[in-house]
Design a protein around this nucleic acid. Sequence first.
RNA 1: GCGGUAGUGGCGGAAUCGGCAGACGCCUCAGACUUAAAAUCUGAUACCCCCUGGGUGUGCGGGUUCAAGUCCCGCCUACCGCACCA
Length: 769
Amino acid sequence: MNNIPAYNPQSIENKWQKHWDETHAFEASASHDKPKFYGLVEFPYPSGAGMHVGHIKAYSGLEVVARKRRMEGYNVLFPMGFDSFGLPAENYAIKTNTHKWTQWIFLKLFEHGLVFRAKTLVNYCPHCKVVLSNEDSQGGKCDVCHSDVVQLPKDVWYLRITQYADKLLEGLDTVDYPESIKQQQVTWIGRSTGAFVDFALDGVQEKLEIYTTRPDTLFGVTFMVMAPEHPLLDKYKDRVTNWNQVEDYREQCARKTEFERTQLQKDKTGVKLEGLEAINPVNGKKIPIFIADYVMMGYGTGAIMAVPAHDQRDWEFAKKFGVDIIEVIEGGDIEKEAYTGDGKMVNSEFLNTYDNKKDSIQAMLDFLEKKGIGKKGVQYKMKDWAFNRQRYWGEPIPLIHCPKCGTVGVPYDQLPLTLPDVENFEPGQDGQSPLARIDSFVNCTCPKCGGPARRETDTMPQWAGSSWYFLRFVDPHNDQAFASMDEMKYWMPVDWYNGGMEHVTRHLLYSRFWHRFLYDIGEVNTPEPYAKRSYQGLILGSDGEKMSKSKGNVVDPLDIVSLYGADTLRLYVLFMGDYTAAAPWNDDSVKGCKRFLDRVWRLMEMLTDDEGIRADMAFDVHSCIKKVSEDYEKMKYNTAIAAMMTLVNALYAKGSVSKAELLALVKLLNPVAPHITEEINQLCKLSEGDLMYAAWPKYDEAALVKDTVEVALQVNGKLRGRMDVPADLGRDDANDYFLALDEVKKLIGDKTVRKLIFVPGRLVNIVVG
RNA sequence: GCGGUAGUGGCGGAAUCGGCAGACGCCUCAGACUUAAAAUCUGAUACCCCCUGGGUGUGCGGGUUCAAGUCCCGCCUACCGCACCA
């Protein structure tokens, strides 16, 4: 073909983007007659510093699949977090009125008893006057001003996600997530089974309830430990003779942040309660009680039975405080360290007949239940979801505090509750929300009794909207419901969700929780929101470090687009390595990708009048179709692109390309580099209409079979040459075939052939000796 | 400490079930074209040696096998997640 213009990415890309805008090319069809594909990519955080090459990788990866699906005849929904002006998700939320529905779902949770309020200690910076998350108060210092963080009691709204712990665990068996993601969810939920056991206190009415996963070791209990915050303690103020010491220790602990208590886990500290003892329910022995901060109030009952012989933490504490250590399971050396393995029971009366954990745990559970002093129990590491923030920019919590009626939900017909205009974004006093100082917002009437009442002034966390946004996309303009059941039945679940590894615990758990709740109350049609989840690896700076402004190694995607074009950028981020692995940016490799697109462009100069795929190119073209089709499905974009490079190299070696060959190539490449391939298709009139709707190419199985194939020739496992053999040579005929060949005879010489192994299509190995 | 993932040339990375290690790209070198350069095209490119050949090589040490990057045993290192969870 003559008169090929130069490849000018900028003008081609502008042209096609305009065309796509005008033709609404990416809009999903409203009709439900085709099979659907719903692909979703996690939105970048609006608070983040603009666009980032990592976002390009996240989106273009799944977009390849979405585009392939479209060419395969699917109705494709693939929403984008940025609109055409590059504005983030918040605009989309305002446009589609999603706020009302976030509040609506919250009220449903409230109605179903999944919202509750509790006082708790929070990290607070007296200087900045804000409540800090654990992440923002590392080392007990405020992340912003480095002042000392203090613990402040505060009312917190919680969502009862723990009630859904088992459902969230079970749901994992029904979805296609990578093992590493499932594992993180399981760890985060942290389910353990064990027993609650009551220990009587000597001379006192109350009992001390503990949780243990090792009821089999009850005969080895030599002391008890209570968390310093344990509420039962105050009752024994008069009985404990060293109460001053106890008070001192409790104060010390209160000053420590959660961070210090959990991260600086070196030395065990604690105080013995003098004058108060517990009684081991299985043998009646009196044992001492300590308070120590290695026991957390937030897990189990806030008190433990200590078995120093078989728990390393208890062992360390017992060594330091001189408490007895009694072995009840044989197999370790308890002088050196706690033994946590399995073995024969000793010193345990009726359990001594057992030689393994499983049986002795069961026997002990039976005993405890019969005696009425304990029962089987389950605990989770996952905590209920603290759901309020003291920020202005957040979804208002639609609750009203009425002095007569208590907490009342805002009536549904008054939704959405909107944020008032505010001049002052500074936080309120003592960790209050900025909204608390706006009387016109706070003061209201109770919807129940009509009396004066006050609005809740805290707002919801960012996680709220992201917990259900994907539902809105299937029916964004609906003002009767967040989405109609008809649309959800067609589009849900999300077929494929791609995102970063950093969101696989919280965001994924939270959104699965909301979705499962909506399913349980009949508002959505699937128990799980995402059928499949994948992730992409980070793009590192060219220095191999994580990209950050301070290191000056951030690559702006727009720079790459203006230098080489969007197609090159997409091609590069998908070619740079294993999609799921982190890889450093390399400017030279970007140029290599541009070079490949130049070579594809110049194929037009070699275009012949041949219509079909030529016989001597059939193998190359069809094996490329097979490889690319399969690799896209597995997100192995790097090897798919390598296969296309190989095909282009073969066409260059041949010096010409037929229309059908070029069409096959541009179709395969279209999902990765949509602009250049549309342009080539149009210039060469390869197919009618836009390439993005053309049928995905199919490979011909027969074209993949060759007459002869090259195999490696090995003697005693060492490579000694390569040779072509008939493709249909079978194992049975291999001995006769190979041993008759001169080059084989030469290699064997006068040695005896002991064995001949032939792997068709791969190699022949002759064992001689 | 626990859980997960990984370790392959100068670099990014390939390699279905155990079957030719290093696909593809980058870098580098050589040649062609050019007054010259760029661009482009062609070729070379793991390492070592006594170089028409041979030897060594996939974090380290063992093992299984005709055959090991891949499987088994024992380690080392890096990254990610969780972390005094009883």
